[in-house]
């Protein structure tokens, strides 16, 4: 009864010889949403993307779009578009040639091609770049062209393979915001594969975390962020510290959580979960202190907890070797189930 609109991946498995790259993955994505598949390199996320594109064959399972099983539908007839980490622009074609590629393939008229290419170059912020050759572009410009090329025929599903990873940080942040805006404006359904949680948070509205070929957690960004399924996922999502057992209980108690006292408590802390406060319930010795534009970041050896990250207001008087008191802000922590 797959009646939903959008992508539906069921029990998908991709095997290379004996190695299982994608292991029984089930995912769904409603149209108009952007899903980030987050995972360390080698976890099978790119293979999953390629299987959805139809480049890799599924060993088992199904990929459906708008209720239709895509088994046997070749890549070029799926109506998707794939964008790679390094763009993979066709080096022998101009920017306009690259952007208009999908239009030419579909036999659109020259005038329509020209109008659409100009429109797309405007959209990605590169007006007037049509005659340039890919070799003369910077990395960021190439990715913008690759994006324009992928969007040209309004694909039913846009597949992005680490689209921003090759760029430097400032550019990445700017382009991530642009990407989100462009996708939202066009109402594009997209899957973004990345190992960078910031990229995922900046662009997507849903998230699936992959590990060793399996999806270990999926949901909306805030669902996943607020309740990581385990410590490993929490670390990968950018939580600075994961505590277990006694130290976890100590922190939870200090934060005012009514713990039931069982032995396998686990809590993931962001750096700002522990903050210097004169009346804080925890006490520790400052090991490192580093000023940043907004807060002072600390490394503190906390009694009963161990070494953790913490922050202090810039006006606070902290120095290495001195004792400080810390309060716990549980809104900046996740209690792991």
């Amino acid at each position: 009864m797959p009646t939903s609109r959008g992508l539906e991946v069921r029990d998908a498995t991709v095997r290379f010889d004996r190695a299982v790259a994608v292991d029984d993955v089930t995912l769904s994505l409603d149209s108009g949403h952007v899903l980030a598949v987050l995972g360390p390199s080698g976890c099978g996320k790119s293979t999953l993307l390629r299987a959805i594109a139809g480049i890799e064959e599924l060993t088992a399972g199904t990929v459906c779009f708008d209720g239709r099983d895509l088994a046997g539908v070749p890549t070029h007839k799926r109506g998707f578009a794939l964008m790679f980490q390094d763009g993979q622009l066709f080096p022998h074609q101009s920017v306009a040639g690259n952007v208009g590629y999908a239009l030419r393939v579909r036999g659109r008229s020259r005038s329509e091609q020209r109008v659409r290419v100009d429109e797309l170059l405007d959209l990605v912020g590169l007006p007037g770049y049509g005659e340039r050759m890919p070799a003369t572009l910077s990395g960021g410009e190439r990715q913008r062209v690759a994006l324009a090329r992928a969007l040209a025929v309004r694909p039913r599903l846009l597949l992005l393979d680490e689209p921003l990873s090759a760029l430097d940080r400032g550019l990445r942040e700017r382009l991530a915001a642009d990407l989100r805006g462009i996708l939202a404006e066009a109402g594009t359904t997209a899957i973004l594969v990345t190992h960078d949680q910031e990229e995922a948070f900046a662009v997507a509205d849903r998230m699936a975390v992959m590990r060793a070929g399996r999806v270990v957690q999926s949901g909306s960004l805030s669902e996943v962020w607020r309740a990581p399924v385990d410590g490993e996922v929490a670390s990968f999502l950018g939580y600075a510290t994961v505590l277990r057992g006694g130290p976890a209980r100590t922190v939870l108690a200090a934060g005012g959580a009514h713990g039931d006292g069982n032995g396998d408590a686990e809590v993931a802390l962001r750096r700002s979960a522990l903050r210097c406060a004169d009346d804080g319930p925890l006490r520790g010795r400052v090991l490192e202190a580093r000023a940043t534009p907004e807060v002072t970041r600390l490394r503190v050896d906390v009694d009963g907890v161990g070494e953790v990250d913490a922050v202090a207001g810039q006006d606070a008087d902290v120095s290495v070797g001195h004792d400080v008191r810390l309060m716990v802000d549980l809104t900046r922590a996740a209690v792991l189930s």
Partner: peptide
């Protein structure tokens, strides 16, 4: 693969 995904046979 990029070309294929853009609809090229």
């Amino acid at each position: 693969e990029a070309a294929e995904s853009l609809g090229a046979s």
